[in-house]
């Protein structure tokens, strides 16, 4: 096995809300290996963003975070603010869904990149500006030296997302977390942004965590996949084995609802994601699972190796073999 750069163990996040405590992440285990592209997939509200915001130390103070997150062997949960600041942007970077609002409208693009460089490296303003232009070039922005002097509103959505990637990789981080980086973009632009991310991963050996609710995106670029449901991971494994013979009923449902050539009708998963203020007992998926039995309501399933996959389903062994989605 290759080296693990990020090891998340039993991560739990609880928000105090006016309607009571809300446990958004309920014991996540997840590894990111050096240089890989890990996909994290799940419906909206399954806790993907919260998991990685907790990793970055970017959750609001009223969130209670427990468990362990090791970044290159260093514990991040409970680390001092000062330490977390030195980690953010240097070892760990994160880019967010909406490129239109993620850049500060009143500062020049070049300055926003330089700020990232100068806050972690001892660079003169001149050198930082030069490096910023190089970075714009790397993410595929034409005429980078002119563009560096412009403001965000002079860029299109796709171009802004490239700028945001440039900021994120400025200090050559170990892990780049991309939270739905293409969701807000046109289909054609989506593909370009995914290409940029892949290029960065290959060129700098950056491990990438690609968060999305779209398995189609994952299928295109990811090495491994982690499926999340109701704040837990329910299945993980390599992209090939997952598509070959998904084992968890939720994964099967996700794959069955993917549009594919030669298939007439999509089969969406019936029912709704659970209310996390009051999640179902046992396997949270039992309210929607076609294989649900009484046992599912009692036991909280943990990830168990099952073939090449790790699956959190108490009935995994008894289930009929799945259709091949590859």
């Amino acid at each position: 096995m290759t080296e693990k750069v990020l090891e998340i163990r039993d991560l739990r996040v609880t928000f105090d809300t006016p309607s009571g405590p809300l446990e958004a992440v309920r014991g996540i285990d997840l590894d990111v290996e050096a240089g890989e592209l890990l996909g994290v997939v799940g419906e909206s509200g399954s806790g993907k963003s919260v998991t990685f915001l907790a990793t970055m130390g970017l959750l609001p103070v009223r969130a209670r975070v427990t468990g362990s997150v090791l970044l290159a062997g260093e514990q991040l949960i409970g680390a001092s603010n000062k330490y977390m600041r030195s980690v953010r942007g240097r070892l760990l970077s994160m880019i967010f869904q909406d490129p239109l609002s993620a850049l500060n409208p009143v500062h020049r693009i070049g300055d926003q990149i330089s700020e990232m460089l100068q806050s972690h490296q001892n660079l003169s303003s001149r050198d930082a500006a030069k490096r910023a232009i190089e970075l714009l070039d790397i993410v595929g922005i034409p005429q980078p030296s002119d563009r560096a002097g412009q403001y965000p509103h002079e860029f299109s959505g796709g171009m802004r997302q490239r700028v945001i990637i440039a900021i994120a990789i400025a200090n050559n981080p170990k892990v780049l977390i991309a939270d739905e980086p293409t969701t807000a973009l046109d289909v054609t632009v989506q593909a370009q942004i995914l290409e940029v991310i892949e290029r960065v991963q290959e060129r700098f050996g950056t491990a990438v965590v690609l968060i999305t609710h779209d398995l189609g995106v994952i299928a295109r670029v990811a090495d491994r996949v982690n499926v999340m449901y109701a704040g837990r991971n329910v299945e993980q494994g390599t992209i090939d084995s997952l598509f070959d013979h998904p084992s968890h009923p939720y994964t099967r449902g996700l794959l069955a609802s993917l549009p594919r050539p030669g298939k007439q009708r999509l089969k969406p998963i019936t029912g709704f994601p659970p209310n996390m203020l009051n999640p179902p007992s046992g396997c949270a998926f039992h309210t929607r699972c076609e294989f649900a039995a009484d046992i599912c309501k009692g036991e909280l399933p943990n990830l168990v190796s099952f073939g090449d996959l790790q699956t959190a389903c108490v009935r995994a062994r008894e289930l009929p073999k799945s259709e091949n989605f590859a």
């Binding site: 970017l58 030195s86 980690v87 967010f96």
Partner: peptide, 14 residues
């Protein structure tokens, strides 16, 4: 509460 403030925080600046 804006997104660009979150971006700023994710840069690790004070």
């Amino acid at each position: 509460n804006s997104d660009y403030m979150r971006t700023a925080r994710s840069k690790g600046i004070s």
